[in-house]
Amino acid sequence: MDLIDLAIGNLTSPIILSFALGLFAALARSDLSVPEAVAKGMSIYLLFAIGFKGGVAVNEAGFSATLVGALVAGGVLSAALPFVAYLMLRAMTKLSALDAAAVAAHYGSISIVTFVAGTSVLDSAGLAYDGWMVAVAAVMEAPAILSALWLVARSGAGRSVDGDLWREILLNGSIVLLIGSFVIGWITGTDGLTRIASFIVSPFQGVLCLFLLDMGLVAGRGLRNSRDVLRPGLLAFGILMPLIGAMAGGVAGVALGLGTGSTMLFMVLGASASYIAVPAAMRVALPEANPSIYLTMSLGVTFPFNLTLGLAIYLSVARLITGG
């Protein structure tokens, strides 16, 4: 299957078409909307399901040096990518140091929905991946925030990281749920999964479709309301940076000797930009940074790019570099 076939297969999948529907509805000013409580409920469901299934996979396969290496590599990647993003933003755009650091933090952290969409692409292609990659995703949530805060502190702006902010960064709901459900899945194993499979396995793809419909709506509204923010330099960054992040993830995957599926997921993690955990931390730590810039960039530019074209590109490259 070549890149074009992969891209077409991906673009015509139910999850991407659901996202496209949401995007279209928002841009066309339809009154279609998903209530906030429903969106949060679906988010909790997806995080729980993917964490649980990852834990079950570790229960079956056991811990290995590769897993530990992947966790370390994920943390390093997350901490390092904001520096690359920051330098690119300062070179390509007119953003202030503060806004550039805030945007950079998003590109070091990850989007768990992009990760889930990546696993969906792998399932469709019949490619296996390591279940513990979800633990790597959890590890990659926070280090980028600290890198961005360090970048800002260098310029004398920002505020000190107090106990509340540490809690916000390390114990935000999505990290706790992802790691917690991972541990539950790891403890209970296949028996536990069998008991709740009808809830967390069968409906998963359907819930993911609805969630992506909502993401499309939110992204479309963000684009509609923040058109002034999107200058050509920022747009170019929003597409170039995920490709660089994916390349770094690919190098890490190959260096660790991961298979094609896991290497592709590492690329997805490197390429994706956060829109839940990091924006919240930035609002507390860097309130002077403009939220419409970083939210529009991560959710309105990079998320749709990764979903529509990125995933197919990353899978093709992963196949090429791992010989899969």
């Binding site: 909307s33 998903v34 969106a39 988010s43 939110v218 923040s226 919240a280 939220p291």
Partner: peptide, 13 residues
């Protein structure tokens, strides 16, 4: 900071 709505939002930001 422009128009905003909570509809469909999962993050607190």
């Amino acid at each position: 900071s422009g128009h905003w709505t909570r509809a469909g939002q999962v993050g607190r930001a």
